[in-house]
Design a protein around this nucleic acid. Sequence first.
DNA 1: CTAAAAACTTACTAAGTAGTAAGTTTTAGG
DNA 2: CCTAAAACTTACTACTTAGTAAGTTTTTAG
Lengths: 190, 190
Amino acid sequence: MAPRNIDTKQEILRIGMDLIKRYGYNAFSYADISKALDMKNAAVHYHFRGKEDLLTGILDQYLNDYVLMGKQLQGSGFTALQKLEKFIERYSVLTEMECICIIGSVASDFNTLPESVKVKIKELVSLVLQMVEKTLQEGKKRGEFHFTESAKTQALLIMTNLAAGVQLSRITGKSDYELIRKALVRQVKG
Amino acid sequence: MAPRNIDTKQEILRIGMDLIKRYGYNAFSYADISKALDMKNAAVHYHFRGKEDLLTGILDQYLNDYVLMGKQLQGSGFTALQKLEKFIERYSVLTEMECICIIGSVASDFNTLPESVKVKIKELVSLVLQMVEKTLQEGKKRGEFHFTESAKTQALLIMTNLAAGVQLSRITGKSDYELIRKALVRQVKG
DNA sequence: CTAAAAACTTACTAAGTAGTAAGTTTTAGG
DNA sequence: CCTAAAACTTACTACTTAGTAAGTTTTTAG
């Protein structure tokens, strides 16, 4: 057989992540993944024993991506505003492909997920919120931002604006997301 | 047979709505509903031919509820702030029962829904946004609110804060929702 | 009381679901 | 080239899903 792929496991994660962002965890099957890769569903089970393991893998990779991005932005010389915009950009691209963010997707399915995954999601959300909070604090200290709420509350406001913003814009159109995006930037600038 | 229920159709809608808010559209089955009502799944099909019809019925009822609430608040003598708080209250109760709002739930499953339902969701979201926008405009005119964004943008900000707020609080706890709720009220008051 | 409509149950289908065991092919290392 | 591990396929299971057709019970209206 001709070599199929450099790394099938990584391809499965990539497609699984796309399916979650596009349709949600409970709306895709192993068959969807195996068809997309022109394989049998048993091959997917070879790499990920069960759907729980697959979701765990997807969340782990997403978390790693975030940690990596955080480290790259750390000593980058970027302003706090630039860092915040890099974060926002992750949501902007979602609206271009009829997707919602992974966190919003699994949050909607939260009650249907196994306990081990719930714990992982909590860690992931905490990490993201802390990253935003930290950036907001930094921007305030440097005089870039002038919001009046606590950094934690402001981070919550921004994250909910973005997460639900991409969900809403799938229904009412991208222009609503743009209104939200611009307004929340004005909000933090003060 | 002893009379089962005053109105089975209404009971089906009630349980279906609860299941959507708790688990999502793609995570419940006709069997879940029939078991909850101690009936056979065919009985559910008697009242709602397919899952599409059921979801349509649920959304119709939700929309009717909103229209009714809107009319009651219309000539009620309530201040704009009181009206806004009545709207917010709808989200607060959700956090008490591990639920998310219907709009957020179907927004996450949007790409998996039939076209007729997508149209209905668009109508529903537009109606809700317009109600909030109108209340905000009224409050500004009466000097209760002092937000700087347009009423439409401010409505988008509030709705995304609330919708994603209940989603997030299912993961990180109710206290985060409370922080969001209080902050957005401060925001509109100016 | 009776007929007919409404509200079901019984019993089924066809398709899709996650998951598994056993066997085959491919790849990599010595 | 040879072997062993890795990466699959084949072929299946047990279960759940939405949905249906036909028959039964219950309710309602005359």
